[in-house]
Design a protein around this nucleic acid. Structure first.
Length: 270
DNA sequence: CGTATTCCCTGCACGC
DNA sequence: TGCGTGCAGGGAATAC
């Protein structure tokens, strides 16, 4: 499930293959993913040189002269760099062919991903109301503390709210709350400033570490060169309901919060 | 406005 | 073996 580290790993793998290359053709094997693929993708991309590939939140932006292709991996999407004549498999929805003889292929079994167009000088509506990047200086414990005052929702739902801070999904919310020692069901507005400082540090530490590990591969995620990530070997709580806490040995609790599977240690997290 | 719920989609694990 | 069911989840849409 691509969260920020997986999207960043994808960007890092794509950058040397894309930047400076020209797009020779675009193949759309279906008209839509989560939303219809706008005609600009097929019409404007061929012939354009790729200026850069950037990440904002869990979105990738492929910058061209007239604008940017905006891409989201949803929860099962992956982007690979392949030889142009590689056999096409199921759920290989989009190819962007390059003048290097290679192709960037977008595979997404569950089609929660999207491929959209952002004209130069505009900000796509999906990017308008996003919170700060968690690895930027704008994000810290004081920011979380101020933003959370008066909020009755759980601290876990608050942390996963992309208008608060971007990039933290269910896996990393579970892991960062564990490292910070905060119970996920606690009301966001009742968590103290020092504890939010611990949480912000945990978010930065864990996301940065996951990027160094190549991300988390649970089912679908794969890097552009086909290798998996290795961070799942370091998960303390996610996916470990009813198993012993790796810190204290007590059995981890599980429930659903905000309709998301949630696992935590009632002894280590208060 | 904040909050909780529903829905999109496919593959897989599970139980009968 | 095969079928039905539930779950995985990012995040927009919807309902209060």
């Amino acid at each position: 499930m691509p969260e920020l580290p997986e999207v960043e790993i994808t960007r890092l793998g794509l950058a040397p293959e894309l930047e400076g290359r020209s797009i020779t053709s675009v193949i759309l094997r279906r008209p839509d993913l989560r939303w219809p693929i706008p005609r600009e993708i097929g019409d404007l991309l061929p012939g354009q040189r790729i200026l850069a590939i950037r990440r904002r939140a869990k979105y990738l932006l492929i910058d061209l002269a007239p604008g940017s292709a905006l891409l989201h991996l949803g929860m099962s999407g992956s982007l690979r760099i392949l030889a142009q004549d590689s056999p096409v498999g199921s759920h290989d929805h989009v190819d962007i062919a390059l003048d290097s003889g290679r192709v960037m292929r977008f595979n997404d079994p569950r089609r929660f991903g999207c491929l959209l167009w952002q004209p130069l000088g505009e900000t796509h509506p999906l990017l308008r109301d996003l919170g700060p990047e968690p690895l930027s200086p704008a994000f810290d414990g004081d920011f979380l503390f101020e933003r959370s005052r008066g909020r009755k929702t759980s601290v876990k739902a608050f942390l996963m709210d992309q208008s608060v801070v971007v990039g933290v999904g269910n896996i990393y919310a579970a892991e960062t709350l564990f490292q910070a020692g905060i119970a996920p069901g606690r009301a966001a507005g009742e968590v103290s400033r020092p504890r939010y400082r611990r949480l912000a540090e945990a978010v930065k530490d864990i996301l940065a570490h996951a990027i160094r590990c190549g991300g988390t591969t649970l089912r679908d995620f794969i890097r552009p060169d086909g290798r998996p990530g290795y961070f799942e070997q370091e998960l303390f709580v996610y996916g470990r309901e009813d198993e012993p806490c790796l810190t204290c040995g007590r059995i981890l609790s599980g429930s659903r919060m905000g309709n998301r599977a949630t696992v935590w240690c009632t002894h280590c997290q208060k």
